[in-house]
Computed example of a mutant assay.
Amino acid sequence: MIERFSPHGTILAMHTDTIPTSDLGWQRQALCAQTGADFFFPEPGSSVREAKRICGMCDMRVACLEYALANDERFGVWGGLSEKERLQIRRTSC
Rank of each mutant, 00 (worst) to 15 (best):
Q27S: 07
Q34N: 14
G45F: 11
C55N: 04
R61W: 04
E73L: 04
T35P: 00
D59C: 08
Q29M: 13
P44C: 07
M1K: 00
S22I: 11
C55A: 05
E85L: 02
R91L: 13
G76N: 02
R4D: 10
K52H: 08
I54V: 13
V48D: 10
G76K: 04
A37Y: 03
G56C: 10
K84A: 14
F5C: 08
H15A: 15
S46P: 00
R61V: 10
P20K: 07
V48F: 08
K84R: 12
R91K: 14
P42G: 06
G56D: 09
S93P: 01
T16R: 14
L31H: 13
Q88P: 00
L65F: 02
F41V: 07
C55D: 03
R28I: 10
A70K: 07
A51F: 06
V48T: 15
A51D: 01
C64T: 01
D23T: 04
V48A: 14
T21I: 09
P42Y: 08
A13G: 15
R4Q: 11
N71G: 01
C94I: 15
F5V: 12
E50A: 14
L65W: 02
G25K: 06
T21A: 10
C32Y: 05
P20E: 09
F75I: 06
W78E: 03
A68E: 01
M1N: 00
S22M: 10
R28W: 13
P42N: 06
H8S: 10
D23A: 08
F40I: 04
G36T: 04
T16I: 12
G79Q: 03
R91S: 10
R91Y: 08
P20W: 00
R90E: 02
E83M: 03
D38S: 15
E50G: 05
L87I: 05
G56M: 10
E50F: 11
V77Q: 06
R49W: 12
P42A: 06
G9P: 05
S6K: 13
E43D: 12
P20R: 07
A30H: 05
R49I: 13
T10D: 11
F40R: 04
A63W: 02
Q88A: 12
Q29S: 15
I89D: 05
S22N: 06
F41M: 06
T92S: 14
T21N: 07
K52M: 10
F40M: 04
D59E: 12
E85Y: 03
P42R: 06
L87W: 08
A63G: 01
A33W: 00
